[in-house]
Every structure is written in C-alpha cells, then in structure tokens.
Simulated scan of single mutants.
Amino acid sequence: MMHGGGGTRFSRVSGEVSGAFGDLGTFLPHVLGVISVAGLKPGGIFTLFGIFYFFTGLFYRLPIPVQPMKVASAAIVTGKVTPPEIAGASIMIGATLVVLGLTGVIGVIARSIPRSVVSGIQLGLGAGLAVLGLKMVQHNLLIGCLTLLVMLPVGFNRRLPQAITGVAVGVLAGLVLGGFPPMQHMAPSLQLPHLVFPGWGDIWRGTISIGLPQLALTLTNAVIVTSTLAEHFFPENRRVAPFTLALTQGGANLLSGVLGGIPMCHGAGGLASHHRFGARTGAVGVLLGTSFLAIGLFFADPALAFLKLIPEGTLGALLFYGALDLAIGGWAPASRWDIVVAVVVALLAFFVNPALAVVVGVAFFRFTPGSRPPG
C-alpha cells in the first residue's frame, strides 16, 4: 500500500534512522570499553565495523546487526588478552565459521535443534539483556528512568523514532545535569587500520581464552537464533540462513584479525533492537557502515568523545526495550510440552550458559515422555 505518499516515505526513512540507533545499548558499552581499557585504536575498530556493516546491509538487504562478540570484549576489558592474542582469536573464530558454513555442518546443527529450544534461548538471552539494561539504568538512575519513561509511549507509535528520541532525551539531560564538556577539534585526520601478525602462540592463547568460549555463544545466538528471528520478522527472506550467517561472520573475523580489530558477530538481540525501533531494510547497515567508516578513517577521536556524551542509563534503556523484543520474538509454542522445554532452556541460558542450555534442552526434548519429533 502506497497511500499517504510522502508521509509513508517519511515514516520509512525515520524508521530506518531510528532503527540504526536501536543497537547502541549493546554496541557502545563494549566498543568504548575495549578502546578505553585495552588501549586499542578507535580508528581501526570503527573502520572494520563500518566495512562489515556496509557489506551486511547490501548483502542481506535486511537490518542484520553487527556487534562486538560479548565473551571476547569481556576478556579484553578485564585485561586477560593482548592485542596479538585478540587477533589470533579472531582468525581462529573466522576460520571455524567459514569451514562450518562451506561444509554445511552449521545447517545440520541448526536443523537438529527443536524450535522450542530456540524459543527458550531467545527468552533466556532476552531476559539477561533486559536485566543488564536495567543495571545500566541504575548507573544513571535519573537519566535512565527518564529515558525509559519517554520511550515507552513513543514506542506505541511506529511513525515516531523511538531510539532517536531516547538518545536525544538522554544526551540533553546529561548535558543539563553534568554540564557541557569542551568541544573537540573536528579537523579530519586519516587513520588507516594497521596489519597485525599474530604468532602461533598468540593464536593458541587467543583460542583458549576467547575463541572456544565465544564460539558456543556465537553458534547459538549469532547464527541459529538470529536466523530463526529473521524468519519470524521477515518471512519472505531468502538470504538469512545459518550457512550465510556463518560465512559473513567468518569472513569479517578473518579480516578483523589481520587488521587490528576485535571479534565481531551478528546477534539476535541486535536484530530485535533494529526491528523494534523501526528498521526494515538493509539501509540501516549502509547508513551505519558509512557513518562508522567516516568516523574510523577521518574523525575517530572527536566522534569517540561525542559518543561518550550518551549516558549509560540511556544506553541501558535502549538495551532494555530491544531485549524485550528478543525475548518474545517468534514465541509460538505448539503445545504445553513446548512451553515446558522453552522455560527449562530459558532458565539454564539465563542462570548458567546458553550453549549448555542448548545441549540439555535438546536432550530434554527428545528423551523424555512428553517429547515429539520437531515439526
């Protein structure tokens, strides 16, 4: 339907722009953390995210997100790994995903997991992200609660850019309450990514400390659950599948590993956030990719200072609303037994580990009296 002409076009454009802000609650804390704590160069990191986002938007033509890998960024922030070990982990993760995608093994894994187990993983991960969002709100309680309250009614009107509204309110409140920081020098300064050559020891240590723990979460959340959620949001989609998600993430991490970036992935939470705040096409990837490329190549330092103006409480509010969509997206239990399985899996994913939750959930589904073949 094209009734409304300009109004419809405006709502679509504003939805894509708002959707671009939707995943900041997940993206910024991890990226700012690895830059400020580990001392990694912001120019290279933003450039590589820009390349991956731009390619993702053109290839999938849907709002598929690009995020820092959570286990990896946590290890980096806590100082457990060195830059060459980060590069080694990225190379190992990238090579593994490419092999799993090209051989079709990733599809076999995905087909062996019942839908109720996937729903449970979504519910558990969504609950975990929602709790994390509320904890971030507590760090700037007044600003965070204000952002949550303002975003709530805006969310019921899909023509209004909910995420942009939340960011604007948070930044304005932060400036009013905390004062205006000095302006950064905005002259462009070219910063190119630099080559990194990890040794075999770096690859081994990066694999043990980051690669193996991260792969379990990546296969669950960034491949299987993201594919399922994309099928729910975009039934006509033909490109987002486990093997394509494995290949695009694999290629991105191989590139990131040799150019001084950090491990990157897609993610169900990011997809839910982009969709929740209005994104419906790959334009969000092109928009963010172009922006990150410009930041990384020419304006890394002043852009970093600007992004730090967004209060943590506001990022928490964005993360909270996106997490709710992840938790309930595609939730369609076919029987009471599906509900039982999903709840058990969600509890394990929330309190223990998503990868363990998948293993236990599949066994629980298949080898108990209430089980039935996946439909």
Rank of each mutant, 00 (worst) to 15 (best):
L62Q: 04
S90K: 03
F55C: 13
G88I: 01
V98K: 13
I76Q: 03
L102V: 13
P84H: 04
S112V: 02
A110K: 08
M69Y: 14
T78H: 12
V117P: 02
F55H: 06
V117Y: 03
Y60T: 01
P114T: 06
A89F: 10
S90D: 04
V77G: 03
R111A: 09
T78I: 14
S119L: 14
R61P: 02
I93N: 07
I64R: 01
I113K: 00
P68M: 10
I76F: 01
A89M: 04
A75D: 07
I64Y: 03
A95Q: 13
F54G: 03
V66G: 07
I121N: 01
A87M: 02
V77S: 08
L102K: 13
I93T: 07
V77D: 07
R111Q: 12
V99E: 14
I86T: 11
M69L: 15
V66M: 05
A110H: 11
G88F: 01
P84E: 05
I91Y: 06
A87V: 00
K80A: 14
L97I: 11
I109M: 13
V117W: 05
L100W: 11
I121K: 07
K70Q: 14
I76D: 07
V99S: 12
I109L: 14
F55M: 14
L100Q: 10
K80V: 07
I121G: 01
A75N: 09
F59L: 09
I113H: 02
S116Y: 00
G57N: 02
G88V: 02
I91M: 14
V77A: 10
Q67H: 12
V118E: 07
V66W: 08
I93C: 12
T96D: 15
F59V: 04
G107A: 11
I113E: 09
M69D: 14
V98R: 10
F59G: 06
G88K: 00
I91W: 11
A87C: 05
F54D: 10
P83D: 06
E85V: 03
S90H: 01
S73A: 13
G104H: 03
Y60M: 04
Q67N: 13
L100S: 08
P65L: 04
I93G: 09
G101A: 12
F55R: 11
F59A: 10
V71Q: 13
V71G: 11
R111Y: 05
A74V: 14
I121L: 12
L97M: 13
T96Y: 14
L58E: 13
I91R: 07
P68F: 06
L58K: 11
L102T: 13
I121T: 11
T56H: 08
V77W: 04
F54W: 10
I113F: 00
A95L: 15
